[in-house]
Write a protein that binds this DNA or RNA. Structure first.
Length: 642
RNA sequence: CGGGGUGUAGCUUAGCCUGGUAGAGCGCCUGGUUUGGGACCAGGAGGUCGUAGGUUCGAAUCCUAUCGCCCCGACCA
């Protein structure tokens, strides 16, 4: 390239047949050095860029910045290890650079995912990250989705002009793939189809934390299936669920699938893949005996017998004064002494602008996610200012007894948890401050719009299947399969024509795997006090040749030969050729967690041996030098087969 | 968005309460002694104490604002 900025004035000047340079691009003092002027060891090398494996790497020429101490902002083991082992570095809250070592594992996870998706019949494509906002505005969930979306306007002078296009950064891609399929697929002959991509997603997490666990920018495999029939969609769904199980076991993650919240979509269903972990921010309810497992947002229990008969009224409703009593606990105490499970809890929510009531037992907690089944697009707890004009009293004295609500016409509904039928006759607020009602009978006195399951399940309650006590554990969600139905295809008009010339909406499913989150989940699930224990399948390198005396030519030569033997056997090999003391090398080796370590040193050479040690095991095998290459190759072959 | 905390060298941090012009460990550089589980000795570089105001003779320290980060809650894959 010419060494001045003259051509910056020429529109679309071509540089050496390369890309055109826009007229406003100014080249200042730009000079490219000829490759021959580079020092010999800096000559560019061309290797298969997309390949995870490749020629073995030498630590001294690679880049693995390990740390002795954990960063101050890391709370959990996997986050600390990610940073200490040099896998990631933080740019800002919820934003991480994948360092060379971390990128290798990330690629292996992606590749395993890709292979399982392909094997299950899914087809890879790649959609833009930058979405014209109209696609979202036309979609069925713009109001809710915009809360987590980033806007991406042209930076320019810092303001978006009225005629500038407006973009958002994609948090997921239903709104993009559905219009695509609508225009490209119109016949039943082209169905079913299942598309996926592995791509970065952007979500404005209210509170990013735990490193890659909850990030603003993260890598996700997202897939979307399109079927002609509901039955076909179920088949697609089950095929994906099966592929997910294969994927997680392949990358060494013990994930369990649980029933998940389906939100506003009646008739659809959903499973999440969960990794049990102390630090998980999801909660799983399960029963080992029956195999029942569900996200707590969705979980039900069998505390209400199916054959429960409604209680007969215990007497006339009676108002009694309760000055200052505004909590369940206060009414439980003397002198009232009403047990919490004999109280009605009346909550006021606002759904799409209209207040509605939720009635629970006093001893139960609302599981807010379950309100999603009521069909509101957005809902939230009502404020005290909103409550009083409708109910006639402040929170603490509320109830749903017929005739006591000040403005019942304002309510969008009164929704009751099934468990209130266990109360039969109980106590509730009178909708007059300082007053409650007793002898309130569920059937006689309450005008329930609809019964449903709204309460949060507690540990030890009977499993809905077997009746055994339910257990509860924290978990990390790493995958989610969702049968969507026609929510998006209806909205975007993604229809096909069947063999009777009839038009139908396609039946969709969507499927996500948190690739970067899985990376961290593996570490969270597989580490010890010294560092990471990588599963063979995703280890950034599988064999580490620990060369203790790189200055000894025969040691260095042997290390290289063993490394090559391991590589020929199918392993990715790292040779630690740094001039560090042995202690440092061993500590680093344990920290970065390469599964198989071969130690080559002057001391061993004198004995005529090298050492072979698995990261996950304590014992060290001494291999005669003559056997070293074949023994290592055999170990690699064994591990690769497992 | 509410509550709490915190910001000092690349990393981990002391000093702050009680104002007097910044100290350690790790890492890094130089030299030497070492060399099979994070060596030792000597020397060295590196900090406008997040930023902006204010109080004061004097501010890392006190006050105000602001930004970042962390924790709890709400919310969310």
């Amino acid at each position: 390239m010419a060494g001045n900025g003259e051509h910056s004035n020429e529109r679309h000047d071509r540089q050496d047949g390369g890309v055109p340079i826009p007229a406003d691009f100014r080249v200042v003092n730009c000079r490219l050095e000829a490759p021959s002027s580079l020092p010999g060891n800096a000559l560019p090398r061309f290797v298969a860029a997309a390949s995870v494996s490749g020629s073995m790497k030498f630590w001294s020429q690679f880049f693995i910045p390990t740390l002795k101490e954990s960063p101050a902002d890391a709370e959990i083991a996997s986050h600390k290890l990610l940073v200490r082992a040099g896998l990631v570095r933080k740019l800002g809250g919820g934003l991480y650079t994948y360092m060379p070592l971390g990128l290798r594992t990330l690629r292996k996870i992606s590749q395993a995912c890709r292979e399982e998706m392909d094997a299950a019949g899914a087809i890879e494509l790649q959609m833009p990250h930058l979405h014209p906002v109209e696609f979202w505005e036309q979609g069925p969930r713009w109001a809710a989705a915009r809360e987590i979306m980033y806007r991406a306007d042209h930076a320019g002078d810092g303001k978006r002009g009225p005629r500038d296009p407006e973009y958002v950064l994609g948090p997921t891609h239903e709104e993009i793939i559905t219009p695509l399929v609508k225009t490209e697929i119109t016949s039943y002959r082209d169905l079913p189809k299942n598309f996926y991509q592995i791509a970065t997603k952007f979500r404005n997490e209210i509170r990013p934390r735990y490193g890659l666990m909850r990030a603003r920018e993260f890598i996700m495999k997202d897939g979307y299936s399109f079927d002609a029939t509901d039955e076909g969609a179920t088949q697609s769904y089950l095929r994906m669920k099966d592929a997910y199980s294969k994927f997680f076991s392949r990358v060494g993650v013990k994930a369990i699938s649980v029933e998940a919240d389906t939100g506003v979509m009646g008739g659809s269903f959903s499973h999440e893949f969960m990794v049990p972990a102390e630090v998980g921010d999801d909660v799983v309810v399960y029963c080992e005996e029956s195999g029942y497992a569900a996200n707590r947002e969705k979980a039900t229990s069998g505390i209400v017998p199916k054959d429960l008969a409604d209680a007969a009224p215990a007497g006339a409703v009676e108002e009694f004064p309760t000055p200052g009593v505004v909590t369940i606990a206060a009414l439980e105490a003397a002198p009232y002494s009403v047990p919490a499970d004999k109280q009605f809890k009346t909550l006021v929510y606002v759904g799409d602008g209209n207040p509605f009531l939720v009635i629970l037992r006093g001893c139960d907690e609302l599981e807010e996610a379950k309100l999603g089944s009521l069909g509101f697009t957005l809902f939230r707890p009502a404020t005290p200012e909103e409550i009083e004009p409708v109910m006639g009293a402040k929170p603490g004295s509320l109830g749903a007894v017929k005739g006591t609500i000040k403005d019942p016409a304002a309510l969008a509904g009164i929704f009751a948890d099934h468990a209130i039928r266990l109360i039969g006759n109980g106590t509730t607020g009178a909708n007059r401050d300082g007053m409650h009602l007793r002898n309130v009978n569920v059937t006689r006195d309450l005008a329930i719009t609809k019964f449903g399951d709204f309460r949060r399940v507690r540990v030890g309650e009977p499993d809905p299947k077997s009746g055994n006590p339910l257990k509860i554990a924290r978990a990390i969600e790493v995958g989610h399969v969702f049968k969507l139905g026609t929510k998006y295809s209806d909205k975007f008009g993604a229809v096909y024509t069947d063999d009777q010339k009839q038009s139908h909406p396609m039946v969709m499913g969507c499927y996500g795997i948190g690739i970067s989150r899985t990376l961290q989940a593996i570490i969270e699930q597989s580490h010890d006090n010294d560092g990471i224990l990588w599963p063979w399948s995703v280890a950034p390198f599988q064999v580490l040749v620990c060369l203790l005396d790189p200055q000894l030519p025969e040691a260095a030569e042997l290390a290289k030969k063993i490394g090559l033997a391991a590589e020929r056997a199918g392993a990715d090999v790292l040779i630690d050729d740094r001039t560090e003391r042995p202690g440092v090398k061993f500590k680093d080796a344990d920290l970065i967690g390469i599964p198989l370590r071969i130690t080559v040193g002057g001391k061993g050479l004198k004995e005529g041996i090298v050492e072979m040690k698995w990261r996950a095991q304590k014992d060290v095998a001494k291999l005669p030098i003559a056997d070293a290459e074949s023994k290592v190759a055999a170990a690699v072959a064994d591990a690769s087969r497992a």
